[in-house]
C-alpha cells in the first residue's frame, strides 16, 4: 500500500527521482480488522504504534510504565506474530503489517486469559497486557515450552507487584489447555 510521493525533496535542490519518498497511506490489520490511515492527516511520522492503537482505535491495553524508554515491556503488542514494543514502533513503519493486542487475544477466547485468572497471575494489572501478549507469541511458535523458555520469553517485561512466578504457572496451564489437557 506504499504510494511513493514526490514532495519536499525539491526544497533541497536535488532531483527527486533517485531519492527516498515519504509514505502517504498506511494500511494495517489490527486484531483481524483492516484499517487505513493517511499520513499527515490521521497519523504523523512521529506517531507511535501505541498512539495509533490508543488514540485512533481505542485500544488502550498497551501501557507506558517506562514512559517510552523501551525498558519495561508494558506496551508489548504482536507485530506480524512477534512481540515488539509499540512505544518504539512508528505507525508509518507498519504498512501492510498485522497487529495483535490483548483485546484481540481476549476476544478470541485464548486460554491464557483464564489461566492468568486461575493462577492469580496479576495484581495491579498494569503490566499484564504486555505479559499476555509476550506469552501468546511464545505459545504460537512453541506450544510446548519448558520453564526456561517461558522465562526467556517473558524476560522483556517488568512487573513491579511481583507476579512473575504466578505468571509462569499461568503460561504452563495455558499450554496444557492448548494441548487439550
Amino acid at each position: 500500500m506504499n504510494i511513493p510521493g514526490e514532495k519536499k525533496t525539491d526544497d533541497i535542490g536535488v532531483e527527486s527521482k533517485n531519492l527516498a519518498k515519504p509514505p502517504q497511506i498506511i494500511g494495517l490489520t489490527v486484531n483481524g480488522r483492516q484499517h487505513i490511515f493517511k499520513v499527515g492527516v490521521d497519523i504523523q511520522p512521529n506517531t507511535t504504534l501505541r498512539d495509533l492503537l490508543k488514540e485512533r482505535l481505542g485500544l488502550y491495553s498497551p501501557k507506558e510504565m517506562c514512559q517510552g524508554d523501551g525498558s519495561c515491556g508494558s506496551c508489548t503488542v504482536m507485530l506480524d506474530g512477534k512481540p515488539v514494543l509499540s512505544c518504539l514502533t512508528l505507525a508509518v513503519d507498519c504498512d501492510g503489517k498485522s497487529v495483535e493486542t490483548v483485546e484481540g487475544i481476549a476476544e478470541a477466547g485464548h486460554p491464557l486469559i483464564d489461566a492468568f485468572r486461575n493462577n492469580y497471575a496479576y495484581q495491579c494489572g498494569y503490566c499484564t497486557s504486555g505479559f499476555i501478549v509476550a506469552a501468546k507469541a511464545l505459545l504460537d511458535r512453541n506450544p510446548n515450552p519448558t520453564d526456561e523458555e517461558i522465562v526467556k520469553a517473558l524476560s522483556g517485561n517488568i512487573c513491579r507487584c511481583g507476579a512473575y512466578a504466578a505468571i509462569i504457572s499461568a503460561v504452563r496451564e495455558a499450554a496444557e489447555r492448548l494441548k487439550g489437557g
Binding site: 490508543k54 488502550y60 493486542t101 483485546e103 481476549a106 486469559i113 494489572g125 497486557s129
Partner: peptide, 18 residues
C-alpha cells in the same frame, strides 16, 4: 476462588491515563 476483577487481564481496565 476465581479472582473478581478480570478486566485487568483482558485489557479493558481503564487506568487514569485512559
Amino acid at each position: 476462588v476465581p479472582p473478581k476483577d478480570t478486566d485487568r487481564i483482558t485489557g479493558k481496565a481503564p487506568f487514569s491515563r485512559d
